[in-house]
Write a protein that binds this DNA or RNA. Structure first.
Lengths: 124, 124
DNA sequence: GCAATAAATAGTATTGATTCCTATTTAGAT
DNA sequence: ATCTAAATAGGAATCAATACTATTTATTGC
């Protein structure tokens, strides 16, 4: 990665500033309000670059939609089936035991992603 | 669901007979070899119907590709980052503790999906 | 500072998976 | 056997994502 272009900085800032999870369209729209000539291709390209450099993380949301969030270490997600909202679940709050499987199989486990599906307070 | 059409039976049988995880294209191609005039739309429609009736399950594979498998109860998946293969991990082999979170938050958790990413024997 | 070189961009075209649409066929019920 | 609703084939339409290209912008070595 060369140096941050204004476009890349804008995109990264949008994601860092936002506490929730943004879709490509969210990001594109927010970016356009600050930088009207930015193109959608630029958004996609930079999201890819930023993800490759581990500055942001892509989350697979409901209905095959991709969401992006700042890279803030291992954690999990809760997706509400009512309103499709995503929220973070901090790592210590749930525990996944992978020790047992790694002893049993020759698979090398590098990452564990746990997603909880359910109903949030508002939708209950 | 009315009654099984030959197309739906064919599609379901392909998935039940297969031990691995099939993409839409895999299913379409296998179906066409048995039933040359079947249309892609029919495959999609039936996959949706079969999933709604809990006969099959859709798995979100690597690179946003959807895979289908018979519905054989709760289990998890291991995805190899080398060859993109998916394999099942039986439920008792890993344990996810959700009890702790449900006490802390008012979220109603209905399903927990854990996906392991790593490297398989062949790719090591 | 200034050319040379490489990376990034805007804008548009293209792709590819999925859904939608419509006339026709098929299966189940009366 | 007829009627009615569901399912189908085939093609058109949609939509997210990628690819392409000419142009702009930044970095490097002088």
């Amino acid at each position: 990665m060369k140096r941050y272009s204004p476009q890349r900085e804008t995109i990264l800032k949008i994601i860092l500033d936002d506490g929730t999870h943004l879709s490509v369209d969210d990001i594109y729209n927010q970016a356009r309000s600050k930088m009207p000539k930015i193109s959608l291709g630029t958004v996609y390209r930079n999201l890819k670059t930023l993800e490759e450099h581990a500055e942001i993380t892509q989350v697979q949301g409901p209905q095959q939609v991709a969401y992006f969030e700042p890279n803030r270490g291992p954690h999990h997600h809760f997706i509400c089936r009512g309103c499709n909202s995503i929220r973070d679940i901090k790592d210590p709050e749930i525990k996944v035991c992978t020790g047992c499987i790694s002893k049993k199989t020759p698979l090398k486990i590098e990452e564990v992603i746990t997603t909880l599906y359910g109903t949030c307070e508002a939708c209950s």
